[in-house]
């Protein structure tokens, strides 16, 4: 009989991806209500230290899998290894944090077991003994309560930041090694070294004031009005991803999960909807102002000051006021 929660621990360059601890925390909270046992799994090569670190969390057991084919991450390698671990340990729920790596393999893993990943959830609650998960749809404009259907194991991932990894409870778990079978036929991807592009010419991480523009600006030429506001404030100009995708502003002005992370005194979001990938890059700002014509825009969820209105009217008025 399948039972218990299995948490996937991700790591790179010998270090745990801190986001994985959020899944540990989520598992502890779920288990707190359901009484399930929790185990964690670490795959790789030379992973003893990582396993020991995780074993310091309040878990029942930590499984390690050492295998040459898991030296560097591949979607095929992790999928096959994790499936064999699941078959050996029979969890009812496999919990992951919705990182880039998890996005890359977890849908395949679930599908290989004739399941679907309930992905990118932001919270859970227990209803009649069963977990119901909440996930965002329409880029955070709406929320949906969803449940996995069919036999266990179920596969669920939580959006980064949904739970506090630093609040995961400490404990002492036993560590045991499992073995899996992998070979060249199974692992088809050949990864090269990870690298960073040439260093960004603009470092926004230390900027005290940032004025940021999103797709609400509609056309490249309109960016001028936001530039004028930034100048009047003495602020740096930044943008959401679509603005940089369109090459209306250079890549090194992009804020978010695939751009820069900033924590200014003031972040002014102009015509930016507030998708999670943008929010993770700026939610550390001390004061957030949002200007958006849509009162339901998710950006207002984290804004200190909100202005519902047409940016083409508000922004020039603000520039004039700032110049006074």
């Amino acid at each position: 009989m399948a039972n218990g929660i299995l948490v996937y621990i991700e790591h790179v360059d010998g270090k745990i991806n801190r986001a994985s601890l959020e899944a540990v925390r989520a598992a502890q909270l779920i288990a707190g209500q359901t009484g399930q046992e929790i185990s964690a799994v670490v795959l790789g090569q030379g992973i003893g230290d990582i396993a020991n670190e995780i074993a310091g969390k309040k878990l029942n057991s930590v499984y390690t899998v050492e295998n040459d084919w898991l030296k560097t991450y591949t979607a095929d390698g992790v999928t096959h290894a994790l499936r064999q671990v699941i078959e050996q340990t029979q969890p009812a729920l496999v919990l992951l944090t919705h990182t880039y790596e998890v996005r890359d393999f977890a849908p395949k893993l679930a599908a290989s077991m004739n399941r679907v990943l309930v992905g990118d959830c932001i919270s859970f609650r227990i209803e009649n003994g069963k977990a119901v998960f909440t996930r965002q749809v329409f880029q955070g404009k709406l929320a949906a309560d969803v449940v996995p259907v069919g036999d266990t194991p179920h596969f669920v991932s939580f959006q980064i930041g949904s739970y506090r990894g630093d609040e995961s409870e400490a404990g002492q778990a036993s560590v045991s090694a499992l073995t899996v079978n992998l070979d060249a036929d199974l692992v088809r991807q050949q990864p090269e070294e990870r690298f960073k592009e040439a260093k960004a010419a603009v470092d926004l991480s230390q900027a005290p004031l940032i004025v940021s523009v999103g797709r609400g600006i509609k056309e490249q030429k309109n960016i001028e009005i936001v530039k004028q506001l930034a100048e009047a404030f003495g602020a740096e100009l930044a943008a959401s991803r679509p603005i940089c995708d369109n090459e209306w502003l250079p890549m090194d002005r992009q804020i978010g999960s695939s751009g820069q992370t900033v924590a200014p005194k003031l972040y002014m979001a102009i015509g930016i909807s507030g998708a999670i990938q943008h929010l993770v890059g700026m939610k550390g700002a001390r004061t957030i102002v949002a200007i958006n014509k849509d009162p339901e825009a998710p950006i207002f969820e984290i804004a200190d000051y909100g202005i519902v209105g047409d940016l083409f009217e508000i922004v020039p008025a603000l520039t004039a006021e700032a110049k006074k």
């Binding site: 309930v118 259907v149 909100g306």
Partner: peptide, 17 residues
Amino acid sequence: RMEFLRVYVPQKSKQTQ
């Protein structure tokens, strides 16, 4: 393999002025 029970406008937790 998964089911949508309910879709709704998320509750705002932050007090935006």
